[in-house]
Design a protein around this nucleic acid. Structure first.
Lengths: 179, 179
DNA sequence: TTTTTAGTTCTGAAAATACCGAACCAAAAA
DNA sequence: TTTTTGGTTCGGTATTTTCAGAACTAAAAA
């Protein structure tokens, strides 16, 4: 009779990789709620769901088809969402030897950087605010003063923030040594 | 002959209030560019333009109709945009005795609060992230560790940030004393 | 060679968003 | 009282966004 041993190699592979990932009801609900959070911060709904999935799901590395099936979406939607997520550095992928598939994962690992990055980008407000202040009439000294104060505060932050990040990194490596 | 004195009272008022605010070409362009910046941060285009207008315009307090005319938009658009701007605390308004109009202004004046507020709101990510971590399988210790680290980082920021703000305030009042 | 895999690209429908204009309304002014 | 002011609310339209599905493709496998 035909025993498991007789399975073709790639069926075997499929068995191992498609390790029957499933979501509990709790996980599904959490994904939706996190998705809403992301959406409120300017991320398209499906991208938010994928990001959430990669954080909530037991398996931190999922293939294109697993994502597609777990969220019940089309290939095209999966493709374009994943591509912009890769472009915006919110998701990364890994490859495995002898495997053509890509394994997508949340970039939570490098979130510290992407986090500080987005702050840095936010600090870009300084440039245009300075421009606005420069072109302002001198007839509104109080308003101009408050604008200048605002700009100074953001500048202060943009300097102190990286320092804060550095300190945290130091503190953390210290902790790790102690463990 | 009919001298200015003969003008009706409310025409007179109109003259004073509608102080013929106009925008230079430079200001118009700056408003558009700032608008794009706001748009990239998730604010609807017209709301971004109004916010920019209130920062760029020589007159820091504008009425409903002045905003409408300066931006060349409809009453309904002006109304709904201003209302959500008020709701989201990005714009405030003042009243003047014996004047039914509202005078809208950028909330840059009270940016201290609205700024720390929005950061605080952003730090809300902690709550949902903790939930996600709690429900995770224990079979992915490395992933969980990195998630925990991320959460700790945000928590660290949410504590250090107000401190940074306080320090800046102190430093600033110090400077003001010296002046 | 043909077939399968792991996607990509194109077309298009449905839904959401961003406006306008007209009608409306309540308070103040005439 | 009627009129004016300072808006709000209600459709409707144009644009944009968000998806699905089918056709396609390059590389690997058979």
């Amino acid at each position: 009779m035909q025993e498991p041993k007789i399975l073709k190699k790639n069926q075997d592979l499929k068995e191992r990789n498609m390790t029957n990932v499933q979501l509990t009801q709790e996980q599904r609900e959490l994904i939706e709620r996190m998705g809403v959070f992301y959406e409120q911060h300017g991320i398209p709904p499906m991208e938010g769901r994928i990001m959430s999935l990669l954080i909530v799901c037991d398996e931190p590395e999922l293939t294109f088809d697993q994502i597609r099936e777990l969220l019940g979406i089309s290939k095209s939607t999966t493709s374009s969402a994943l591509n912009t997520l890769l472009l915006t550095q919110r998701v990364i992928y890994k490859t495995r030897p002898g495997d053509r598939k890509r394994y997508f994962a949340s970039n939570i690992v490098e979130w510290q950087e992407s986090f500080t990055d987005s702050f840095q980008k936010f600090f870009g407000v300084i440039k245009i605010m300075k421009e606005a202040l420069d072109q302002r009439t001198s007839k509104t000294p109080e308003f101009n003063r408050q604008m200048a104060e605002f700009i100074e505060f953001i500048e202060y932050l943009s300097i102190e923030f990286p320092r804060l990040y550095q300190e945290w990194c130091n503190r953390n490596t210290q902790n790790n040594k102690n463990n």
